[in-house]
Nucleic acid binder design. Structure first.
Lengths: 347, 347
DNA sequence: CTGAAAGCGCTTACAG
DNA sequence: CTGAAAGCGCTTACAG
């Protein structure tokens, strides 16, 4: 008897007294097979714990039921949240996912892109760093275009100039407005904007909206209240220290993301600044850490579920000859928690 | 001219005026090729952005350079930390990883196990829930054995009775002793043990050690100080509330893991209990959240890097006919931060 | 409802 | 150093 791990459809066919075509038919339910024959084949398969070789299947079908997912750092709760939702959607449709962490190294990004194509993934979900730059690098764009000739790409919350891939997005501009309007509704007018890096889309979008509010005199701010301190907890921590060294303080702070907001909260605690009594703060992203911190942080949430599922569905769909719009927007949601409070109550 | 995405070695061979064997040789550097011939072949490959089909290669080589990684929840910093280290080690050796989140659903665990085998992964790194039970389920063990006939499995910090797979482990017993000894060295004697679930290995190991210390009278505890409240932040939060309802309080708390410790810290803050002044607390795992919380939490760290790299190396090694011990232990490390303090200072 | 044959795109002895 | 041929393990027209 053959080794269990080298049984093929031929062995099954032999022992069941049928042709491999028939074995393939029962394997895939791709055509009618007489009930008796089917039973015989299944019996033999079970006997040997037969598992078809997906490589061979994929080679002939030109479909791998595999998706590549490129992101900077799965350790970051924002990315792990969208990843997990995507994986579940993928599982439901029978796909496996190659996860590729680039750690913001664009060379690694290129290596993974290349590998995924060679492994014949049915599509790539891309959240790599190069898709977050407001001005896209021409060489990177070129590279993406070459990939796209072979494999569909869908970017989540990112895009690249001249790269006509699928894009699935949170309406971040609208989300940021929701945050600002909420602060305004609480009576705040003197507002600081903390975190971010100029040139990165998610920062530029928010900076833009903020400027509009300032220009229309809805918000009063100062140059020193706009602190581009990156995306990390540390960045929020340093930013608050900087703010506290100033003569005038804002009554509210809007952070580029939740990590920044968490850093602000941490620094506030150390410095003895009361949140929200002395200053309100809101974040962006709604990562789960916002609820484990004290006070829990008011924030704007992505629609993680829809965002991720749409990305997966597009890949599955175009592999089944369906047609999709290139761009899809999803609404964000204001999540009110404890870090923000009305101005009246503060005084 | 052919479509760029359907170029094969035959097309390259034709245009370069050589045989496919030669194309394969330059592709793999598997045998000497005249420099001039090689140059000609490479030129044609470049012209068409040729990328070999890894499916076809894997089918004939019976090697996919792919690893499957099964874990409960990548959203949990403990798992994402080991995953990220494993992925980097894998990348260095040319492997891609299928990440499979089971969300603690053992049916999903089975589906992924099956899929990974069909996709012919070179090995599976397993941190699934079923490997964490002190008493292993016979049906699950059987399933694992069937898998192991076809694909090597290496478990990280887990094992299953009767399943002779590779095991890579933190010496958790020793790590827990380090924590206890540290507390003792600070003068603490009245200690509570919080979190965990009986029947789960990581709990049982720690419970065991704890009992030994109690029996040898190094520690004084009470029944009500041992609270099996799971592994979540919420679990730590509830546990501290429970402790605070008691007449007597311990001077120190050792938590099953960092999530529990974080929950304790959060509850303490809400209830106005001073940490570490009124009670010291230490966690286990050294996830990065321990440093963003105030006070930063003293904990025991796994050697994430070595643990993950060893798992990957074993898979790569046995696919190259190397031989490995079945079990490998790695030391843990005590990381002292702000949540613990000497008993003298407390009074 | 079933089978024989070709094809998917590589690699690998084997021969020269 | 190079080429012709078989093989990896499936699926899919095609014919009956």
């Amino acid at each position: 008897m053959k080794d269990e791990n080298s049984i093929t459809v031929y062995d099954i066919a032999d022992e069941a007294g049928v042709s491999v075509s028939t074995v393939s038919r029962v394997l895939n339910n791709s055509a009618p097979v007489k009930e008796k024959t089917r039973a015989r084949v299944i019996k033999v398969m079970d006997k040997y714990n037969f598992q078809p070789n997906a490589l061979a299947r994929s080679l002939s079908k030109k479909r791998t039921k595999t998706i590549g997912f490129i992101l900077p750092d799965i350790t970051n709760p924002f990315f792990s949240e969208v990843y997990v939702k995507a994986e579940r959607a993928a599982l439901d449709l029978g796909y496996s996912i190659f996860l590729s962490n680039t750690m913001n190294d664009s060379e690694v990004e290129s290596i993974y892109l290349k590998t995924l194509v060679e492994k014949q993934v049915d599509g790539i979900i891309f959240m790599g760093g190069r898709a977050n730059e407001t001005r896209t690098d021409a060489a990177f764009a070129e590279e993406m275009k070459v990939i796209m000739k072979k494999t569909p790409i869908v970017m989540i919350n990112g895009e690249m100039e001249g790269v006509d891939c699928y894009r699935v997005k949170t309406d971040e501009a609208d989300g940021f407005r929701k945050g600002l309007n909420y602060l305004l509704s609480l009576g705040h007018k003197e507002i600081a904007l903390v975190g971010g890096i100029k040139g990165i889309t998610s920062t530029d979008i928010k900076l833009d909206i903020f400027s509009q509010y300032v220009e229309s005199a809805q918000i009063e701010t100062k140059e020193e209240w706009i602190i581009e301190s990156g995306y990390s907890i540390e960045g929020g921590y340093e930013a608050l220290k900087q703010l506290l060294s100033l003569a005038d303080l804002p009554t509210a702070i809007i952070a580029i993301n939740d990590f920044i907001a968490i850093g602000v909260v941490k620094a506030a605690k150390e410095m003895g600044l009361q949140i929200p009594q002395e200053v309100s703060i809101i974040g962006f992203d709604n990562i789960y850490l916002t609820t484990i911190v004290l006070p829990a942080i008011t924030t704007i949430s992505h629609n993680y579920q829809e965002l991720a599922a749409k990305a997966v569905n597009i890949i599955d769909g175009i592999n089944n000859n369906q047609v999709y719009e290139k761009e899809h927007f999803f609404d964000s949601e204001l999540i009110i928690r404890e870090s923000s409070i009305g101005l009246m109550k503060m005084e």
